[in-house]
Design a protein around this nucleic acid. Structure first.
Length: 807
DNA sequence: GATCTCATAGTTTTT
DNA sequence: CTATGAGATC
């Protein structure tokens, strides 16, 4: 979402770069005199990758092999040897974070800021720059808007409804996904192959074309267009392509294994002349196939660029030998790899640790306790600080168990990669206001805010506005003005709409007159009633939302004006909140790519979870057998290789999936861990050992003895031990959650059986509160801090017995 | 037009 | 189980 009026802000990028390059050249000569010091810090493979500047190069860089170092040194080398000027280098990454990091590291190497590298950025950011320069070639104006997925889906929904298609059977989300897929493969509407004709009830292509038309009239693009349009321009306009082929004398690509077909074509076109392209990647870390990435791109590199130099970076500087061996063991199960073998000089260190638990809660509890004791040093290991520890899960819903548990025991944690700041409702609303203020013709933004906060302008009123706008061929805001003038709207709605339009006019004028944009933003939020709207909202989230709005206004300070902010935020904004002291990181395996931690926990290694059910199904049938299964295995490889010193894998025998209890089978990947590099820990709670007090050797060697069934059987033996059976006998039938029941027995003993209306109670997580409702064994409690919750009576105790509260 | 209740469907996620 | 969305009700 978001707009850019300052479209040619970089039109002088080449000139700027050129100016800077003079000094760079001077410096290069000086540096050339003394041998470049950074070269001495490289190993032979890295050095070759840095010094082989001309012709196609494929750098196969395993996890932790100093890939970013090689890449940044290569850029520095291009500059310092005077081979290329800063503006002649095209360097693309996938994330803003990677781009930022690269910029910083090049700057450090060069000992100067790198503002003169205008073409270092993400595929999308560079795509925007290129597209703004040539927008007219695809029927857009250079100040086009970039829609985010939300806007995209809403637009598609409108089209679907307009076509009288049942939106329930054919949801807009699904269509958005299909269209994304086509765009990822660089198929414009007229280029979608006939084989796809049946998509979306056979109307997919037609709707795709309608959507693209609609985008054009809105002067908007979606993310896919940023690449698709540019590829289209390059293909249809030889002169434009030739120009860029000359300009970008050296091309560098990070994470090449993640490129989709559109990005691949984009690169191949640009590199077509000189072929000075250096792609860095790791086929073993390709984990984004589900969103269009083609591992094939990297596997095919040598065919695409005959005579390419292939360099393998295999010396790992991150992990211990045990960890590397475990990772290699797992990944070796994949076929069609380019093949790398990581090695290291590092000390042997701890083996990869494996532990099974009874259920998911148990697993979370154990990890919580293990982290607690790791802080002081345990099992003969050095102490670990909380920020040295990460928990990596397959799917985000697995995080909840850990959050719950860590809240309970008060262990500081942070979730990485949750909903993005700018994806939050209140931020999107606020930005929609800014959008309408800076570009009054932005209909999507207008639709979003016209009745937010509630102004008594419902579907009917909005339909009238739409009709008025369409009849006069003007944007919605003008349509609304006409409607009001014609007295086509009555009552409260009319007055409110009048107020809104006047406000928007006023704010737009203020923005034009160069009012301070930070103050203006605050004024907009206040006068529109949006701030009040949340102040009056009594839901528990409201304070947080107001807080976010404050932060948004503060973020504006870093920009020249509202337009500049909006332009930036659509592509760049992240929500790195300032850390409040050391915290354990919780994130998905996908989010962990590129990161490293001294200690890593990998929970939930169970068939159906990891590897995911979908990937298991994929193995047995259909088109490309095992494609997704291979990707899961790469994900396991990514997970293990995040660990520097300590890697702990765990699984549970029972887990609640969508509220149902399920028997879980240990992950097939566990069988693939080489036994010599794994130490099996004893699950707690067995043999009367008590939680957290592990007795050695209880997990049988059979875990590694072969088939999965054997694993399961062996594991079952543990659980059939006398102590365990006693526990089971006490707790009831097998197959339900015995430990849970067992714990609950304790709970029952301590909990006051009955709470009455109005009683003060205490809950471990939610704190103190008063009972406001009783429903069987469930209570409704209004907590002082946490708001109103419904919960099972046995999880609260009378307030005066708070010390006894079980958990 | 707004609020409530019921039904439904649930990987991974950057730009 | 729980978040989300659509229909029904006030």
């Amino acid at each position: 979402m978001v707009r850019g009026m300052n479209s040619f802000d970089d039109s002088d990028a080449f000139e700027k770069g050129a100016a800077l390059s003079l000094s760079a050249r001077a410096r290069a000569q000086a540096a050339g005199a003394r041998a470049a010091p950074y070269l001495d810090t490289l190993n032979p493979a890295q050095r070759q990758a840095v010094e082989s500047l001309d012709g196609p190069v494929l750098m196969l860089a395993g996890a932790g092999t100093g890939k970013t170092k090689a890449l940044t040194c290569r850029i520095a080398h291009l500059l310092l040897t005077g081979t290329a000027r800063p503006n002649e280098i095209l360097a693309v990454t996938f994330t803003n974070k990677a781009a930022r990091e690269m910029k910083e590291r090049v700057a450090t190497l060069m000992n100067q800021p790198v503002e003169g590298m205008p073409w270092l950025g993400t595929f999308h950011a560079i795509g925007v720059k290129l597209l703004r320069r040539h927008a007219e070639l695809v029927g857009l104006k250079s100040n086009f808007t970039i829609l985010d997925t939300d806007d995209q889906v809403r637009l598609l929904k409108q089209i679907i409804v307009a076509e009288n298609i049942d939106e329930k059977r054919w949801p807009a989300r699904q269509l958005a996904h299909i269209i994304d897929g086509w765009k990822n493969r660089a198929w414009a509407p007229d280029a979608v192959p006939a084989a796809e004709a049946s998509a979306f009830n056979s109307r997919g292509v037609e709707l795709y074309a309608a959507y693209q038309e609609r985008l054009k009239t809105l002067n908007a693009t979606d993310f896919g267009d940023l690449l698709l349009h540019v590829v289209g321009i390059f293909q249809k306009h030889e002169d434009v392509l030739a120009q860029y082929q000359r300009w970008f004398r050296y091309i560098l690509v990070d994470e090449y294994q993640d490129t989709n077909v559109a990005q691949y074509l984009w690169l191949r076109l640009l590199a077509g002349g000189h072929k000075n392209i250096c792609c860095v990647g790791d086929d073993d870390q390709s984990i984004y196939g589900w969103r269009g990435a083609e591992v094939g791109n990297i596997l095919r590199f040598e065919k695409d660029f005959p005579g390419a130099l292939v360099i393998r970076l295999e010396q790992n500087y991150r992990s211990t030998p045990h960890i590397l061996a475990a990772a290699s063991g797992v990944i070796s199960g994949n076929k069609g790899r380019l093949g790398k073998e990581l090695w290291t000089d590092a000390q042997e260190g701890e083996k990869v640790r494996l532990i099974g638990h009874w259920d998911g809660d148990e697993e979370a509890r154990w990890i919580g306790e293990e982290i607690e004791s790791m802080q002081n040093g345990t099992r003969g290991m050095r102490p670990f600080a909380l920020n040295e520890i990460a928990i990596l899960v397959r799917a985000s819903h697995q995080m909840r168990a850990f959050e719950d548990r860590f809240l309970t025991i008060g262990l500081p944690y942070k979730v990485i990669g949750g909903p993005r700041f700018y994806e939050r409702m209140e931020i999107r609303d606020a930005m929609a206001y800014f959008r309408v203020v800076t570009s009054p013709e932005d209909d999507l933004a207008f639709e979003r805010i016209v009745n937010t906060p509630k102004r008594g302008l419902g579907d009917k009123a909005q339909a009238k506005i739409q009709a008025a706008a369409r009849a006069n061929g003007v944007p919605l805001k003008e349509g609304a003005r006409i409607l009001l003038a014609a007295k086509g709207l009555g009552g409260k709605g009319a007055a409110e709409l009048r107020l809104l339009i006047d406000g928007l006019d006023r704010w737009s004028a203020a923005a034009r007159d160069g009012a301070n944009h930070v103050e203006l933003a605050q004024v907009i939020l206040d006068e529109s009633g949006y701030t009040t709207h949340w102040q009056n909202d009594k839901t528990p989230e409201a304070p947080g939302r107001l807080e976010n709005l404050k932060e948004l206004v503060k973020a504006l300070e870093g920009f020249e004006n509202l337009q500049g902010f909006l332009e930036h935020v659509s592509l760049v904004m992240d929500n790195d909140k300032g850390d409040a002291g050391p915290q354990v990181s919780i994130m998905t395996l996908h989010a962990a790519k590129g990161l490293e931690f001294p200690a890593v926990f990998l929970p939930g290694w169970e068939d159906g979870i990891f590897p995911s059910q979908r990937s298991i199904d994929d193995q047995t049938g259909k088109v490309e057998i095992g494609r997704e299964a291979d990707e899961e295995r790469r994900l396991a490889y990514v997970g293990i290789t995040r660990a520097e010193e300590l890697c702990t894998i765990s699984f549970a025998s029972n887990r609640r999936v969508f509220g149902r209890w399920q028997d879980q089978m240990p992950s097939r990947f566990i069988d693939e861990l080489p036994e010599a590099h794994v130490e099996v820990l004893t699950p707690p709670g067995l043999y009367g050992g008590g939680y957290g007090a592990a007795a050695p050797g209880a997990m049988p060697d059979g875990v590694f003895a072969g088939s999965q069934l054997e694993t399961k059987a062996a594991e079952a033996n543990v659980y059939n031990s006398p102590g365990w059976r006693r526990m089971q006998a006490r707790a009831g039938a097998r197959g339900t959650s015995q430990p849970r029941e067992a714990r609950n027995m304790v709970i029952d003993a301590t909990a006051v059986p009955a709470h009455g209306l109005g009683d003060r109670v205490f809950h471990q997580k939610f704190g103190y509160g008063a009972v406001t409702g009783i429903e069987g064994d469930k209570l409704e409690v209004a907590f002082d801090k946490a708001g109103v919750k419904k919960l099972v009576a046995k999880f609260v105790v009378a307030a005066d017995r708070a010390d006894d509260v079980p958990f």
